[in-house]
C-alpha cells in the first residue's frame, strides 16, 4: 500500500508539471505531437529512476559541500548514456528531440527529486519515486502533445482524422504551447486538485 502511495503521489499530488511546475522547457518544446511528448517523458523517466537510485546509494558518503556538483555529474552521466543509446538504436527519437536530450541534465525535476527525496530515502523507495514522478511527467507531456496535435495537425499519434482546412497551425507553434499548457493547468486545478 505504502509503495503504491509513493507512485500515486508522483502522478497526482506531486505531479511535476501541473503541481510542482518544474521542467517547463521540455514540456513546452517537445510536445508538438503526442508521440514526441511520450518519448520525451520516457527519456526523462529513464534518467530520473537511475539517477534517483544512484544518488540514494552515494548520498551518505558525499560531503555536504560538494553534493550538488556530484549529483550533477551523476545525472549528466546518465543523460549522456541515454543520448548514446538513442543515437545507436532509435535515431528517429534522437532527431526529433534534438537539443532537449542533453538538456535533461538541467531539468529541475531531476535535481529537485535528488535533493528533495532520493538523498533521504533508500534505493527501493527512490526508484519508486522516480517511477511515480516519471509517469506523472510522461502523462502530462503525452496529454499536452495529444491536445496540440489534434488542434494543430488534425491527427493523433500520427493518425490523421481532421482535414487540412480545419487545422490550427498556431497550436503546433510556440504560442499554442503556452496557451494549451495554461488551460490544461486550469482544468487540473478545477477538477483534480479539489479531491483531497
Amino acid at each position: 500500500m505504502n509503495k503504491f502511495r509513493i507512485i500515486l503521489d508522483g502522478i497526482v499530488k506531486n505531479n511535476p508539471t501541473f503541481v510542482l511546475i518544474l521542467g517547463m522547457c521540455p514540456t513546452l518544446a517537445t510536445t508538438t505531437s503526442a508521440i514526441n511528448g511520450l518519448s520525451m517523458g520516457l527519456a526523462t523517466m529513464f534518467v530520473l529512476i537511475l539517477a534517483n537510485m544512484v544518488i540514494s546509494l552515494i548520498a551518505p558518503i558525499v560531503p555536504d559541500k560538494v553534493h550538488i556538483p556530484v549529483y550533477i555529474v551523476v545525472i549528466a552521466t546518465f543523460v549522456t548514456l541515454l543520448q548514446l543509446l538513442l543515437k545507436a538504436y532509435v535515431p528517429a527519437v534522437n532527431d526529433a528531440l534534438g537539443l532537449f536530450i542533453p538538456l535533461i541534465v538541467v531539468n529541475c525535476i531531476i535535481l529537485g527529486r535528488a535533493e528533495g527525496f532520493a538523498n533521504k530515502h533508500g534505493v527501493g523507495e527512490s526508484a519508486l519515486d522516480g517511477i511515480g514522478i516519471g509517469i506523472g511527467f510522461t502523462l502530462a507531456l503525452t496529454v499536452l502533445g495529444a491536445v496540440r496535435e489534434i488542434l494543430g495537425s488534425g491527427s493523433i499519434f500520427n493518425v490523421q482524422f481532421i482535414g487540412e482546412q480545419y487545422q490550427m497551425l498556431a497550436f503546433v507553434m510556440a504560442p499554442g504551447a503556452f496557451i494549451c499548457l495554461g488551460y490544461l493547468m486550469v482544468l487540473f486545478n478545477k477538477f483534480i486538485k479539489k479531491e483531497k
Binding site: A174, P175, G176, I179, G182, M185, N189
Partner: peptide, 21 residues
C-alpha cells in the same frame, strides 16, 4: 480562482509569443 498564478501567466506568455511571431 483556477487561473490564478501560473496558468494565467502561461496564457499571457502565449499571447506575447504570438506577437513575437
Amino acid at each position: 480562482k483556477a487561473f490564478r498564478g501560473v496558468p494565467i501567466a502561461l496564457v499571457t506568455v502565449g499571447i506575447l509569443a504570438m506577437a513575437f511571431m
